[in-house]
């Protein structure tokens, strides 16, 4: 799936000085399966960039097109279709439901998209070493555990692009490596690309390009 940005700039960032490698106010194309690393210091618009792609924010100028279709013209039905089949996301603030158990959080997505079965969920949880936490309410889990469940949730649906917003911020090196392996495998299985925002560069994913914002 092709993502094409034409002269996009979020309205709040209009007055800011932009780096020459920035995605803002320029034309750029991304084609899955391509791994894109987005690097920037805090407050430069990394999350804004992913939110614009995901259709949560529309306060930008310019045009974002998926396979030549301007996403601004999508209605709510089309967005819900895209989010179920083409674009998956791990939010920076995770957005799990704290009063549901981890398993129920995953089942929501499972029921919505009918992609994975319970065994696959279990094996993903085992890989990330959170399988023993599946039946606990999310509010009682540590941030690191929550982050791993958020990653699993994003992977249990079909997608062409995976948007990862600082997905390893609460994970240690060992768990980060495991998560990266899982993400890489899932992207390959789906023939999908990914956008990853991160504060530090030491990720062992084969990025095709790095964008500074």
């Amino acid at each position: 799936m092709n993502i094409c940005l034409q002269n996009v700039c979020p309205i709040p960032l209009k007055e800011q000085d932009l780096a020459p490698t920035s995605v803002w106010k320029t034309d750029c194309n991304f084609n899955s399966p391509e791994y894109v690393l987005i690097e920037a210091t805090s407050g430069r618009g990394k999350t804004t960039f992913l939110s614009c792609l995901y259709g949560i924010r529309t306060d930008y100028e310019g045009q974002i097109a998926f396979d030549n279709k301007n996403t601004r013209t999508n209605n709510l039905k089309q967005w819900s279709q895209l989010r179920q089949t083409a674009v998956s996301i791990v939010f920076q603030d995770l957005r799990l439901f704290p009063d549901l158990t981890a398993r129920e959080n995953l089942q929501l997505k499972q029921k919505l998209t009918q992609t994975v079965n319970n065994d696959e969920i279990l094996s993903m949880a085992e890989l990330l070493e959170v399988d023993h936490k599946l039946d606990q309410k999310v509010r009682f889990l540590s941030l690191g555990q929550q982050q791993r469940f958020a990653i699993i949730r994003a992977l249990t649906q079909p997608f062409k692009w995976l948007l990862l917003d600082e997905p390893f911020s609460h994970l240690d090196t060992k768990n980060t490596a495991k998560a990266i392996t899982l993400i890489d495998n899932c992207c390959k299985k789906n023939d999908a690309g990914l956008f990853l925002t991160s504060l530090n560069e030491d990720h062992s994913l084969p990025f095709s390009r790095t964008i500074m914002i």
Binding site: Y54, I56, L76, K77, S80, Q81, L82, R83, Q84, I89, F91, R95, F97, L108, K109, L112, T113, R153, Q157
Partner: peptide, 9 residues
């Protein structure tokens, strides 16, 4: 959040 996860409103 449900809508952001792809549930139709």
């Amino acid at each position: 959040t449900l809508i952001q996860l792809g549930v139709y409103f």
